[in-house]
């Protein structure tokens, strides 16, 4: 599952960030913001116009576009 499909409000854990979809700079920046594999992340909401989405990770609110969210693989917390 990717962050794009992750249900809103459910806690998930980052498994990997693809390099091909969002590109290297995007991936590196996400990693540098602390979304390394194993980090807990939660989709909070989708913007009123349908894109982008808002995330909570490491106590920080971040927004990324859905197309880029598809490069972040996550697993839902049990």
């Amino acid at each position: 599952m990717t962050l794009r499909e992750a249900p809103i409000g459910r806690s998930a854990r980052v498994v990997a960030v693809d390099v091909d979809k969002g590109g290297r700079a995007f991936r590196r920046r996400l990693l540098e913001l602390g979304l390394v594999p194993g980090t807990e992340v939660q989709v909070l909401r989708v913007a009123p116009l349908g894109d982008p989405i808002e995330l909570l990770a490491r106590g920080c609110l971040l927004s990324i576009r859905k197309a880029d969210a598809a490069s972040v693989h996550v697993e839902l917390a049990p």
């Binding site: 996400l30 913001l33 927004s63 990324i64 880029d68």
Partner: peptide, 10 residues
């Protein structure tokens, strides 16, 4: 195309 990474500060 530059992917958006926007911090929503407190």
């Amino acid at each position: 195309r530059v992917p958006l990474i926007l911090e929503l500060p407190p």
